[in-house]
Design a protein around this nucleic acid. Structure first.
Lengths: 192, 192
DNA sequence: TTACTTTCTTAAACCAGCTTAAGTTTTTTA
DNA sequence: TAAAAAACTTAAGCTGGTTTAAGAAAGTAA
């Protein structure tokens, strides 16, 4: 819970009343590796904050192949927002890809929290700005050749590519595992 | 200005004080067709709201080809948020693709407005949630075959495809104008 | 109306990235 | 620690979408 509070404090100030309300609204969840935190087609009742570990959001395409849309590492929020807000069935699944510690909040409690403490709106406004901006940025770089996108991603997030299975990395970058394998081979010849 | 106020009122309530502060912070801009509202590489000092007309956001890829990232029709906001927030040079350009009426606000005034009227944070939190969600949604559909993406887009936004030049539509959907032409030809044989 | 510019179309040649299929290595489970 | 399952590699053949190039149509301006 400490980590969530610290993260919020990076953006806005919190008084004791707010801190206690936050602590009472969120609860801690531990998800083992591979655990599905949200299932495509189900109601999306929770918003999650990653304390430790890593989540991925994905869906099954028309051929039944899993397509990874985004990852959430420590200090990132994740949910199918549209489903969460509109109380609809989710179009994405969310899965822990490592043993992950989450802090979750139910939609009802989230709405209450924001109503009682409107100053938190600013925090979430900034969080969504950041998420939106990251998704535009990614859209931009995903349009270059897949090879370029891979090299850019490697140089930008070297730690991350160590941490996540190649299969998922390939699915996130938008290509097949076979092609990723080929790129790695090519690259290892250049810098052995 | 009326239209902006109405749009905000769809999400939150406004008192007279807020209304007058808003009216004093924003100003009206008219951009003729093709006018560049923001130039890649320049400081991005403004946030824009489209009252009438249409904007597009784009950049030049490594080959010098324009890539359209998104459009903003009536009642949508547009800016290079990252550049706007961090007071950095923009990585996107913004152009009016029709004669467009905008309402603009400078970064300084925007910050002041939100500080003086924190209840507006909620409005912008929701705006960015929506923008983020739309961009995820689009990412999902952009991964199917380009042909499918085109048909999906046509059936979802039939008015919009009438309104925007095919060249820009192709660039937005992520393929060449030549290929779009081919798809149209193919489609016109099916339903003449 | 004419000239100029931009957009759209057509078609053939080409290639980045996919598919398939089989083998190898690593991880998980019992 | 052995067997099963999952992840990764390799390579050949294939295809959706690009490139190139040239002409037709539609806008824009004078």
């Amino acid at each position: 819970m400490e980590l969530l509070l610290n993260h919020i404090k990076k953006f806005i100030e919190l008084n004791d009343d707010q801190i206690s309300h936050i602590c009472n609204s969120f609860y801690i969840i531990t998800a083992p590796k591979r655990k599905l935190v949200l299932n495509e087609g189900e109601m999306c009742t929770h918003l999650y904050f990653v304390v430790k570990g890593c989540l991925r959001m994905f869906y099954f395409d028309e051929k039944g192949v899993e397509q990874t849309v985004q990852f959430a590492l420590e200090n990132w929020w994740m949910t199918d927002i549209d489903a969460f807000n509109k109380r609809e069935k989710s179009i994405f699944s969310i899965q822990a890809i490592e043993k992950t510690t989450l802090i979750g909040i139910r939609k009802i409690d989230f709405d209450l929290l924001l109503t009682d403490h409107p100053s938190l709106e600013k925090y979430f406004r900034m969080i969504y700005e950041r998420a939106y901006s990251a998704s535009l940025y990614r859209m931009k770089y995903a349009r270059s050749s897949k090879e370029d996108f891979y090299y850019l991603f490697c140089s930008k997030y070297p730690d991350f590519i160590q941490r996540v299975p190649q299969k998922l990395l390939a699915s996130f970058l938008g290509f097949t595992p076979e092609y990723l394998s080929e790129l790695r081979k090519k690259n290892s010849k250049v810098r052995p």
